[in-house]
Design a binder for these strands. Structure first.
Length: 262
DNA sequence: GGTACTTCTCACATGGCCAC
DNA sequence: GTGGCCATGTGAGAAGTACC
């Protein structure tokens, strides 16, 4: 898809951002997919089964289902999935197709593209289809880049320790509203707190504390910008007892106050 | 009055460094 | 892979200000 022209993308009318109902489930169909489906999880907890392989999904989980794939899914009614799906086709022979699954390390830019794509068609917008094709291509490049970086990272740290650290990082990312303690996270990884802190920074690139703040701020930006929540609601949702402290931290990391983001 | 922000203070958790 | 020491940063509370 790297070399496919934007005009080669065939947009399908099946796309949306939805909050899944508590009773939601996605049953396996008799026929496989006949087009591509970009499937992104904004929040919630669930499980997606792709070609009989189960994946635990949460914020940042991103699939690119391909023609011929079989899928099904369920979610935790207590933490319903919020997701975006975009169906599309691509004309002509393809090389460099993104992997079927990854958890995005940096979600902000990608979520902005997803939100823009969906919003383009909410009202009649001049040249919406042309822009949507460009956005789609941009998202494919984003995924290809993410896949390459992940492979390089895996080469560097392909062992059990790395997997344990990645699992903890994913857990933190999926639960930005919980105030995690390093000793608890270390226990989850089966390491001493001191050693866990050191390895976490080596593998993830951020200290535990810094990573927790970063995921919270990213989530806050999304809630403020896309979910329409006010500053008090967002601070509360992300476990900040002090809205003023939240505001200060937000500005420290983003350069803008929460009210400016809204 | 409600909301958002600033400043100050303080206890405690965390990270960096080093030795083992 | 772990633990000790110490500097630093974080989180929380309080008081006050600005704006609508």
């Amino acid at each position: 898809m790297l070399h496919a022209l934007p005009s080669a993308f065939d947009l399908k009318p099946a796309f949306a951002k939805i909050v899944c109902e508590p009773s939601w489930k996605w049953l396996k169909r008799e026929k496989p997919f006949d087009n591509y489906d970009l499937f992104y999880v904004w929040s919630g907890e669930g499980e997606v089964v792709l070609n009989d392989i189960p994946y635990a999904v949460g914020k940042g989980s991103c699939f690119l289902f391909r023609p011929g794939d079989y899928t099904s899914a369920t979610h935790n009614p207590q933490k319903p999935l919020v997701l975006t799906y975009i169906h599309f086709g691509v004309d002509g022979p393809l090389s460099d197709v993104p992997e079927r699954y990854r958890v995005l390390a940096e979600t902000l830019d990608f979520e902005h593209l997803l939100a823009r794509y969906v919003r383009l068609f909410l009202v009649e917008t001049f040249a919406a289809e042309e822009e949507a094709k460009l956005i789609l291509k941009q998202m494919m490049i984003h995924l290809l880049r993410e896949d390459r970086e992940e492979r390089q990272e895996l080469k560097k740290h392909s062992n059990q320790l790395t997997e344990a650290i990645h699992e903890v990082a994913n857990y933190v990312r999926q639960n930005p509203g919980i105030s995690h303690r390093v000793d608890e996270l270390a226990q989850r990884a089966g390491l001493s707190p001191r050693y866990f802190s050191i390895k976490f920074k080596q593998i993830i690139g951020h200290s535990v504390q810094n990573y927790m703040i970063k995921t919270r701020i990213e989530r806050a930006e999304h809630l403020l910008h896309d979910a329409g929540m006010n500053v008090t609601e967002v601070a509360d949702a992300l476990g900040y007892r002090d809205i003023f402290f939240f505001s200060r931290q937000f500005k420290q990391y983003t350069g803008k106050s929460p009210s400016e983001i809204r």
